[in-house]
Design a protein around this nucleic acid. Sequence first.
DNA 1: TAATTTAATTATGTCTGACATAATAAATTT
DNA 2: AAATTTATTATGTCAGACATAATTAAATTA
Lengths: 235, 235
Amino acid sequence: MDIEQLTEKIGRIDKSSLVDKVEFKLIEFFVTKQLKPGDSLPKELELTDALKVSRTVIREALLRLRLMGLIDSKKKRGAILTSPDLVSILERSMNPRILDDSTLKEIFEMRLALEVGMADFIMERVTPLDIAALKFIVDAEPQATERHIFQIEHEIKFHGKLYEITGNSTMKKFQKLLLPVFDYVHSSGILSKPVSERRFVSHREIVDIIENGSAEMLRNGIRNHLENHFSRLFK
Amino acid sequence: MDIEQLTEKIGRIDKSSLVDKVEFKLIEFFVTKQLKPGDSLPKELELTDALKVSRTVIREALLRLRLMGLIDSKKKRGAILTSPDLVSILERSMNPRILDDSTLKEIFEMRLALEVGMADFIMERVTPLDIAALKFIVDAEPQATERHIFQIEHEIKFHGKLYEITGNSTMKKFQKLLLPVFDYVHSSGILSKPVSERRFVSHREIVDIIENGSAEMLRNGIRNHLENHFSRLFK
DNA sequence: TAATTTAATTATGTCTGACATAATAAATTT
DNA sequence: AAATTTATTATGTCAGACATAATTAAATTA
């Protein structure tokens, strides 16, 4: 009889810790009770009575939920349910000095992919006001000299605005989160290829595409604009 | 004198809790000691002695680090440093039933953007073996009848393979993570527009582009293939 | 009476010390 | 030398206490 059949027959033992179980039970509780963000949870001591476990366990489970962004607890008021913000959860772990190089490189790549792919959302949702704002940003940029210098602040301003135009706040926050990683990867020795000095599609040209072009043109424009980064990844 | 100047002069008070400080100190410790994944941490009681705080506080700080994916602790062996996996951190919070609708919709959008944007990585890194695998997947798909039926399993298989080809494991895991959300959004009432039955660029055509086309063609091809989803977002 | 200050309450934050449990290392037996 | 038993050790769980901050109620003052 093979192992799988055996475990099937005997049934697997529950190796999860007490805290695991409490955590699960609490989430179940939220869902079945249809609690909405802002609703308050039972107090720690009430939970100890109800679940018959120590306050330590309750606290640890609640802590997990808090780190997941599911609840928010204040003194005296107790804990209340919140709508979890995925990005701020990631934020806690997003320390470039701790992540390993290959992960950092992959995040760098994801940012590039995301930016190329968001062209459709920009074209769909851009307003005349946005275009004016983009033009304002571009006008404030220093004239490009013969050699292209990577102006990090202007890059951030321009691309940040693009994310904003998508109207997708998760994406926008994601970008903000990825920025330090991107910067770190860009300036550290992780990417072996040197930084190219060539100029490709400029910010000004991208604005022009947004104003007069199509989603397809914008995709290609952004892709080309990012060529300096892509070429460091590809041979 | 305005508030800002005042706080500048007086200096802001540290409102962080003890656990916050310990957490920070521990991370500092990792970084300055240049600990690598696999290295073991001091025991809880040693930390209690070293930092002069109770074991409760130490444990809570360690718990946070564990939830961040920074450490992994086993009985007797103590805690060891690990390289955090961002995706598995997100996984804990990615419960469609708990996230609110607007966040879910934004995640849905991000997935679309990512998929369009990853075309360059696919074209750069695809191998003949990958193409053969894609063809195999496509061949196994049922013939399209006059009406396009959304075959979730085949969608997953095909698109999963695309992510795999990018060679970016973070992106691949990200997709796997987003799948339940995507499915949930697709089939729940969050998107008001109905599911279109029209057929656009097929899987087979995408494979053909990958084999014979360019990155630009693939971007457009994937975008068109996903039109059914895009059109539910845009009017 | 209204506004302010003070006191009481309450729930989380921190501390201490103890025992349970599981994984490893050491000692023993075969 | 291999297998078994025992001892050790570090995390997991427990219980109860006090500290602290935020809120509410009461008291005071204008």
